[in-house]
Write a protein that binds this DNA or RNA. Structure first.
Lengths: 339, 339
DNA sequence: CTGAAAGCGCTTACAG
DNA sequence: CTGAAAGCGCTTACAG
């Protein structure tokens, strides 16, 4: 069906070896021959067979990306960043989603290894607390790059923001707005990202000598609006007094604010709120939500750059890299008491 | 590096042919041999080489998906739907984005054909008004499935909602709310989807005998908040009187509402607004935005189903299918005048 | 500078 | 029921 090297070779009455070399711009082909081949290939619209090439070179030029969630502003931006860098190469992106399930994640990793992808980029599932599958990736010499949800104990390439510092800043901001009893709707206990953000909250309290109250820490088992609502209802029903709230992600904050609005609790006057992630909706709701902005697009670009760098590095036996990205506190209506 | 059929064959002292057949569950292999091979393959974690298999079977089990935009609620849902169906098969999804550019779209199609994908699922770019690249796909016997932004003149598999009817309903709803001078922020002139939605608006005016006023039709060159703002400012500055507004997409409506809110024009009392798409933010803003809900997840699932069906059909030389999906008018604060 | 040949890992028609 | 052999389309070490 498709044209092959052989077809070109026959048409031009030369060998397939020479055609192959001409197309790959080897230096040991005469300029005349090279031009002849290139022109002809161009004219007939020759498309080399990627799979056959792989069989020889062992490079598929495929990259697997596993996201914990598809409808997630950060990950959409990360995808855009990766695709943007990738569009200048001949790599292709295979998209998979773990739905935050450990089992699905393992399954996808297995599938990607079977496909012989050259690299796997992953933000691990919230559930994931064992890492054999990631070690498997490394063993197979597939380049592994973690982003956002990472793991401390696996030595691999990573692109992160300083969650702990960011969360410190968010909490500090509330303190500067006069909050003294700050609730924290943290993520579950396993995820490193969740732990880091919680630590940042604690750091800020400590730094500003505000007593840490265990009962003001509520755990969100999922990053959903519903979990935000559930926890805020718990706060109100237990009559836990808070005047500020930091959350592990904007969706949680949204749920919490929803409950507060229904109960006519004034935001930010009675309770000031800061989210995390700068989801698109945060600037649209009312009051608009203060949050931590992470540059997902840049994150995606860095992920791909680290992959490329890593390909060179493995030849040199270099250690994996960790790239730290900047973040930004975005102050909006939900936390801005002073004018 | 990786284990191959040959390794298994040697270990079990049988031929690679037999190993291959055993693994593929051919019937002309003795149960004993089959079991032996399967057990051993399982034990050593054998992963057949996908690319080598392709070289023989000419099936890559890869599917290319080209989206006009990544951060787009509908397309995120479509992706989820496709991935959901796909996860029960051994197909993999290669993600590409045209950024609504005709040139990029053409480039991506070329790349996918070179990769020998088994199918291409695409919502075409707003710019796209020539279709040679789609015909190319068909010529190469790659299964083509269009969704959302489609083309009338290409006979291929499609998954659509009845945009015209949906837009009729949106406009009719405004009329039933008492609107008589309904503005329309339509999409650009090329896209079939945009045309269909505009026709639905016209249909409704005609049906309810409301005079069509050309000056109330403004064109949005992009599906962005900024375009919605720009057009609403134009309406106000030209002092064009409207009491209702339908828009080609929710983002446009968002921009328009923003301008109205700034100028203290009451929504829905003075101007009632209906969007299109039921983006997540529409229920979060205030007033919440009435809109047309499209089931993107279902759309994605149907796209994949059509692909699978089409593989059988091509053998039978059947004609391509068009799948029409249901939609729903979601009435919210932005258009609800009566209680 | 050119080309014959081997081989990547699988599948499958064919012979026995 | 089993296996030898050819071949998918490319790349590349080697000979000339």
């Amino acid at each position: 069906m498709n044209l092959t090297l052989k077809d070109i070779a026959q048409a031009l009455e030369i060998s397939t070896s020479t055609v192959s070399k001409a197309l790959k711009n080897y230096k040991d082909v005469s300029p005349t021959t090279k031009k002849k081949v290139l022109d002809y290939a161009e004219r007939i619209g020759f498309k080399p067979n990627a799979q056959a090439a792989f069989l020889r070179t062992q490079k598929t030029k495929l990259i697997g990306v596993i996201l914990p969630k598809i409808e997630h502003d950060l990950y959409c931006e990360v995808l855009k960043g990766i695709l943007n860098k990738m569009s200048q190469t001949d790599y292709k992106l295979i998209l998979l989603c773990s739905e935050n399930s450990f089992e699905i994640e393992k399954k996808h990793i297995r599938e990607l290894l079977q496909l012989n992808v050259d690299g796997i980029f992953i933000s691990i599932a919230l559930e994931t607390n064992r890492f054999d599958h990631l070690k498997e990736v490394q063993k197979s010499n597939t380049i592994l790059v973690l982003f956002d949800h990472y793991v401390k104990i696996i030595a691999t390439n990573r692109v992160l923001i300083e969650d702990r510092k960011a969360s410190f800043l968010a909490t500090e901001h509330l303190i500067q707005q006069g909050c003294q009893k700050i609730g924290c709707f943290r993520g579950e206990l396993i995820s490193q990202t969740s732990i880091d953000r919680f630590m940042g909250y604690k750091d800020a309290l400590e730094y500003y000598k505000i007593p840490f109250q265990k009962e003001l820490i509520l755990i969100c088992n999922e990053e959903t609006i519903a979990e935000g609502k559930r926890n805020m209802i718990e706060i109100l029903e237990k009559k836990l007094e808070i005047d500020g709230l930091v959350t592990v992600t904007d969706l949680i904050a949204l749920g919490a604010m929803d409950v507060l609005k229904q109960r006519r609790v004034k935001i930010p006057e009675e309770i000031a709120v800061v989210g995390f992630g700068n989801w698109k909706f945060t600037s649209l709701i009312s009051p608009s939500l203060s949050t931590i902005d992470q540059n997902g697009f840049l994150m995606g670009e860095k992920v791909f750059e680290l992959f490329e760098k890593s390909q060179e590095d493995t030849l040199l036996n270099e250690l994996p890299n960790t790239e730290i990205l900047p973040f930004q506190l975005v102050v909006r209506g939900s936390s801005c008491r002073k004018k």
